[in-house]
């Protein structure tokens, strides 16, 4: 399991290569990439700042990854989450799961994102022409996490 909390951007193809290496047993690689959108309601977002809790962030991502590995037969797993100042179009988060079959790879990636939304210690602050504001947590995110049981 590769876990990274970093300010630098990540290279999706390079990360896939790290998991695939020269393996020939993998039947499926699923990737999810979260991006900074430029729209929030009516206002254009100019910048997003991601604050994180350094002592907990990697540890919590690893816990989520371990939970996913316990639930599905994964062959490999990468979770990368960025922090700092980001701009529309920038990559925020990357999840890659590999498995012998697609179902485990798809489900585990979705599970990891649903848990990450509520359990990983990151906070988004958006800047629009009206100033800056903290993004509110969505109740829907709790429901999505709970739906996995």
């Amino acid at each position: 399991m590769r876990i990274s909390v970093q300010s630098d951007d990540f290279d999706i193809a390079a990360e896939i290569d790290l998991l695939k290496n020269k393996r020939t047993d993998l039947g499926a690689i699923a990737t999810f990439t979260g991006l900074v959108r430029d729209i929030h309601g009516e206002k254009d977002i100019k910048k997003m700042t991601l604050e994180h809790f350094p002592a907990m962030a990697e540890k919590e991502l690893a816990k989520i990854g371990t939970e996913a590995s316990d639930r599905w037969p994964l062959q490999g797993l990468t979770i990368i989450h960025r922090y700092g100042e980001l701009y529309p179009g920038d990559q925020i988060v990357l999840v890659i799961t590999t498995s012998h079959h697609r179902e485990a790879a798809f489900n585990a990636a979705q599970f990891i994102m649903d848990w990450l939304k509520t359990d990983a210690p990151f906070w988004k602050k958006e800047e629009t022409e009206d100033g800056t504001h903290w993004v509110d947590a969505k109740r829907d995110d709790d429901k999505k996490k709970d739906s996995w049981g």
């Binding site: 989450h81 988060v93 994102m113 947590a137």
Partner: peptide, 26 residues
């Protein structure tokens, strides 16, 4: 001490407490 806890969790002077709003990462 870097573990999520409910608000009724017992603490002492030697603990490190972190307080924050619900998370909005991802």
């Amino acid at each position: 001490n870097d573990e999520y806890v409910p608000l009724d969790y017992n603490v002492s002077n030697t603990d490190e407490l972190a307080l924050f709003p619900p998370m909005t990462g991802g």
